[in-house]
Design a protein around this nucleic acid. Structure first.
Lengths: 141, 141
DNA sequence: TTTGTATTTAACCTTTAAGTTAAATACTCC
DNA sequence: GGAGTATTTAACTTAAAGGTTAAATACAAA
């Protein structure tokens, strides 16, 4: 596995057990035993998964008596969001020659629209920031 | 490595060579030899990386004489964007104890607000869909 | 200080990732 | 069909991921 920060982040996420653990932590702190319960694997195996997440700084850990509670620490997920965002146009548009041309045109339109929508977009941001618990479907997969 | 679709996607991305190849393909189709040029590794090594990307459906390949041109096929990147989006609030808020308390309060407020803001939220979605090209910086890393 | 509970570490196994070099394939063109 | 170019496959190596069980560690409480 590559050792650069971003590769470490993605490699940590490239495992369904670890993603399930992150999803569980959305509901709040949990102990190793609690986190392990849904899985069929041994406790040491889960402990290793937690170490991978911890090294990727996707979780942080506390200490209370013999418990080492985990909580989500999603900083690196922002890197993922920022990185993938750069490719948005590749999944939002089809990519043959005609579309290349249409894409150029659209770009101009959007730049014009941006000015008009600034006010609405600002309001959007505030609402997003408030509605932190509105998510019906919690993170999954 | 896990074999579920999403894990395969993330594992393919968890390598700087493969991300560099994707970034290169933003500039358009390229042959294996062209893609290999920037790297110090052998051609078969690059060929293997391409196979990983292909299996993850992050690239598609053509055939012209002895060339097997690659082009980006970013469909799975949308899955990444959608998945990570679920965690946005975790990097947009700080997460110490006080915030835990404030978040609880906000949750109540938001539930009330949701009714009133339904109209505005719908409009928000439309605007997001329009502003796909507002991205200044091209892909990197 | 012993006991009980939570968690990690050690030692090991099996599979796979990622690279190598050398040989095979797939084409084009003469 | 032989030569030249692009790419893949084969065979091999090394290192690491992800799991196991058994033992060690850390702490609370009796």
């Amino acid at each position: 596995m590559s050792t650069d920060r971003f590769s470490v982040t993605l490699a940590a996420l490239a495992d369904p057990t670890r993603r399930a653990i992150l999803a569980r932590l959305v509901g709040g702190e949990a102990s190793v035993t609690e986190l392990a319960r849904p899985f069929e694997m041994s406790l040491p195996a889960v402990s290793k998964h937690l170490k991978v997440l911890e090294r990727a700084k996707l979780i942080a850990r506390g200490r209370t008596a013999q418990w080492r509670p985990c909580r989500i620490a999603a900083g690196p997920l922002k890197d993922v969001a920022d990185w993938v965002e750069q490719y948005r146009r590749f999944w939002e548009e089809s990519f043959d020659r005609l579309d290349d041309y249409l894409r150029e045109l659209k770009t101009l339109e959007v730049k014009t629209l941006e000015v008009k929508t600034r006010e609405v977009k600002t309001r959007k941001v505030k609402i997003s920031a408030l509605s932190t618990k509105e998510n019906k479907h919690g993170p999954q997969s």
